[in-house]
Design a protein around this nucleic acid. Structure first.
Lengths: 253, 253
DNA sequence: TAAAATTATTTGCATAATGTGAACAGCATG
DNA sequence: CATGCTGTTCACATTATGCAAATAATTTTA
């Protein structure tokens, strides 16, 4: 599950963090329950849990472990560090109002998209227990991002995360994806036609740093019964590209 | 720095997490800079950093490491798990409006108080880089909480966290603290008179679970020039106790 | 442009720290 | 009172980590 690292990966840390995430995902676990989820002896799990507790990442009520509120505070620190969050929020709400559809801003990290701000989490399956974390191959913004990477980078992303099917329409074949990405590149923005969720159409485009670094993506979408093709490639696409522009402009102030 | 654990503490995990927190605190660090902060060889630090990156807790731009946004998402998961957050927010704003002073709700965790919701972080020194994390011995809610613990538990808290001076008035002596706690117990709520910040008066009381477990504290406070003693022990104290009551009532619905 | 300095990364080795399973303890249930 | 269940401890084997020095990559300086 942990990704590639330069140098030597510390397995102790890896399993500790995996356990932390399991506790978060399962909203409180006992040692015995964890024992069923992880292939390690109880005594090892015990050490990890108690170490995480000692470091104030976990706490316990009786026999069940829970993630500490401290994690929430630490997380907010991360948000506060950047202007990105507040700036994007305004632009996303504006984009949503203008188009009448749901909009969101996602950040590219480790080959996934994390929703920083936007409408309520979409219909996506809660596959990793977290929501708000998306693949690149089946999202509008994600495809726009992949289209900007060179083949090598794309392969690296796919190697790490695969191409899980979300719907019937999800592109699960590398060659077909590369074709789609060529098209995306020519077009200048990404499209998903029910590849992410049944009945969902969306447009997405990439957002860049002041020095051209890929930050993430902006996207709008809605149900197919409300949006037709002309709109998707027309008004909606224009709105997204315009929003990207204002966002990038605002960021370099 | 890590606290006591039952069982064996995993040092690898401990230092990994310490490094994570250092990166968060210092808003991006290079390996070389970290080398100055932690007493470990560069090669070890490298392994920890890269492991944390592999697990998507850190990312890097060039040579500087930063904490991933993912931590923000994980943190939000923690908040979303509980009703406490939303319920307390309403009551805190109400309390603040009624009294005209700043109010906040803090949660007890690992012998510290974490501000879950409330007015902007108070004038406290940013001693652990995080703000929003308070000691028990020099806060109104904290003293109310300590007053409910038995001596053994109080000693444990003090052993772990000490009694750092925040101001001249901060109680830095155990015996004097225990005297103050006896008084607090009789009174039914905690008071700080410039012990937390110069010129700041505050009242705080404990908040309990549906089954009587200590959850945290609610408090109101403001500058000395606006609040006199009669008010502090009168209207303000009453307001806090009333707010605690509604909060607890709402929680068990 | 070359040399120097600064940074990150790799590697082999010694050893400490972790993984392991079995034994122990603590608690509720029947 | 015994029987399950839970979590906790322990001694041992082994592996994974810490370490220091060497290498590589990069930037700075001359």
């Amino acid at each position: 599950m942990p990704g590639p690292t330069t140098g030597r990966a510390l397995k102790t840390t890896q399993t500790s963090l995996r356990i932390l995430e399991l506790v978060l995902e399962h909203e409180g676990l006992t040692l015995a329950e964890l024992d069923g989820l992880v292939d390690k002896p109880k005594s090892s799990l015990h050490s990890h849990l108690e170490t995480l507790r000692g470091c104030r990442y976990l706490k316990r009520n009786g026999h069940t472990y829970e993630v500490s509120f401290r994690l929430a505070l630490l997380g907010e620190q991360v948000r506060r560090r950047t202007r990105l969050d507040t700036v994007a929020t305004d632009i996303v709400t504006d984009l949503s109002k203008r188009t009448g559809e749901e909009a969101n801003f996602t950040v590219l990290e480790h080959g996934r998209l994390l929703m920083l701000c936007g409408s309520a989490p979409t219909a996506a399956h809660d596959d990793d227990g977290f929501r708000r974390e998306y693949y690149l191959h089946n999202t509008a913004a994600g495809k726009a991002i992949l289209a900007e990477m060179d083949r090598e980078q794309v392969e690296a992303v796919l190697d790490r995360w695969g191409m899980p099917r979300e719907t019937e329409a999800t592109i699960a074949d590398r060659d077909r994806l590369f074709d789609a990405l060529d098209e995306t590149k020519r077009r200048g923005y990404g499209i998903v036609d029910e590849e992410f969720a049944p009945g969902l159409l969306a447009v997405g485009a990439t957002v860049h740093d002041e020095d051209g670094t890929l930050l993430g993506g902006l996207s709008v979408g809605g149900p197919k019964y409300r949006i037709d093709t002309a709109q998707l490639y027309g008004d909606l696409a224009d709105a997204v590209l315009e929003a990207v522009d204002t966002l990038e402009q605002t960021l370099l102030q």
